[in-house]
């Protein structure tokens, strides 16, 4: 083998090793660091363990929002079939309303309350988060053109 060819071979080996290492890194990172999205019905059927972070979406149940103490807020998210209580501390988004769609990120605490670290609402009265639309459709509670 000529020195030039040998250098190329080493280079190719280095590339393959680096590529494999990178791919392994990516796969591991993807396994442990993605957030799944569940609807309230999913939570009831899938037995999501406590303290595992995920995202939940649905409609804020009418009459369920309670404030205090401090910036603490409690409300219930529903997909029309199942209901999940949510606790959150902080400012609510501009268009957070009862009866409207929200997506929250957090984890289930003991007792089945979802402790949210972030609450997102649609920023537009015409727009509904696509995951929420999907969850409502699966629960058979989605009416085209209305909320």
């Amino acid at each position: 083998m000529s020195p030039k060819k040998r250098r190329r071979l080493y280079f190719a080996i280095a590339l393959v090793v680096a590529g494999a290492g990178g791919a392994a890194l990516i796969v591991r990172a993807l396994q442990d660091n993605v957030l799944y999205f569940y609807s309230p019905s999913d939570i009831a059927t899938k037995h999501v363990p406590p303290d595992v972070a995920f995202r939940i979406g649905g409609l804020v149940e009418k009459g369920s929002v309670a404030h205090g103490p401090g910036t603490e807020v409690r409300f219930i998210v529903t997909d029309g079939r199942k209901r999940v209580p949510i606790a959150y501390s902080g400012a609510l988004p501009d268009l957070f309303r009862e009866g409207q769609g929200v997506v929250a990120t957090g984890a289930l605490a003991r007792g089945g309350v979802f402790r949210a670290s972030e609450v997102l609402a649609k920023h537009d009265e015409r727009y509904m988060p696509p995951e929420v639309v999907d969850a409502l459709k699966r629960a058979g509670r989605w009416k085209e053109g209305g909320t």
Binding site: G22, L25, I26, R28, A29, L30, D32, N33, V34, L35, Y36, F37, R55, E131, D134
Partner: peptide
């Protein structure tokens, strides 16, 4: 049909 989101932790590792 699984809905996931990839956030800062993934990018912090990779």
């Amino acid at each position: 049909g699984k809905k996931i989101s990839v956030g800062p932790p993934y990018f912090a590792i990779t």
